[in-house]
Simulated scan of single mutants.
Amino acid sequence: MNWVGSKVSTQRLSLRPIQDQDLQHIYRGLSDPKVIKHYGVSFSSMEETKEQMDWYRKLIENKTGIWFALELKESNEFIGAVGLNDIKKEHRRGEIGFWLLPEFWGSGYISDAVPKVLEYGFRTLKLHRIEAWVETENEKSRKALTKLGFQYEGTLRDHEFKNGRFISVDILANIVDNFV
Rank of each mutant, 00 (worst) to 15 (best):
E47D: 14
E47S: 12
E47A: 13
E47M: 09
E47H: 12
E47F: 03
E48V: 11
E48L: 14
E48F: 11
T49F: 05
T49G: 04
T49H: 07
K50H: 14
K50P: 10
K50N: 11
E51Y: 06
Q52G: 04
Q52N: 09
M53G: 02
M53F: 02
M53Y: 03
D54V: 14
W55E: 01
W55Y: 12
W55D: 01
W55I: 01
Y56M: 09
Y56T: 07
Y56I: 08
R57V: 07
R57F: 08
R57H: 12
K58C: 08
K58Y: 08
L59M: 15
I60T: 08
I60Y: 06
I60F: 06
I60P: 01
I60W: 06
I60H: 01
E61T: 13
E61P: 00
E61D: 13
N62Y: 11
N62E: 14
N62V: 01
K63R: 15
K63N: 13
K63H: 13
K63M: 06
T64H: 06
G65R: 13
G65E: 12
I66G: 04
I66A: 10
I66L: 15
W67I: 04
W67L: 05
W67P: 05
F68C: 03
A69G: 07
A69P: 09
L70Y: 08
L70F: 07
L72N: 05
K73Y: 05
K73H: 12
K73C: 09
E74D: 15
S75H: 07
S75N: 11
N76H: 15
E77W: 02
E77F: 02
E77M: 05
F78P: 01
I79K: 03
I79S: 05
G80L: 10
G80I: 09
G80H: 11
G80D: 10
A81D: 06
V82G: 00
V82R: 00
V82D: 00
G83T: 02
G83F: 04
L84K: 00
L84N: 00
N85L: 02
N85W: 03
N85A: 02
D86E: 14
D86C: 09
D86S: 15
D86Y: 11
I87E: 08
K88P: 00
K89D: 05
K89E: 12
E90Q: 15
H91L: 11
R92N: 08
R92C: 08
R92P: 00
R92A: 10
R92L: 10
R93Q: 15
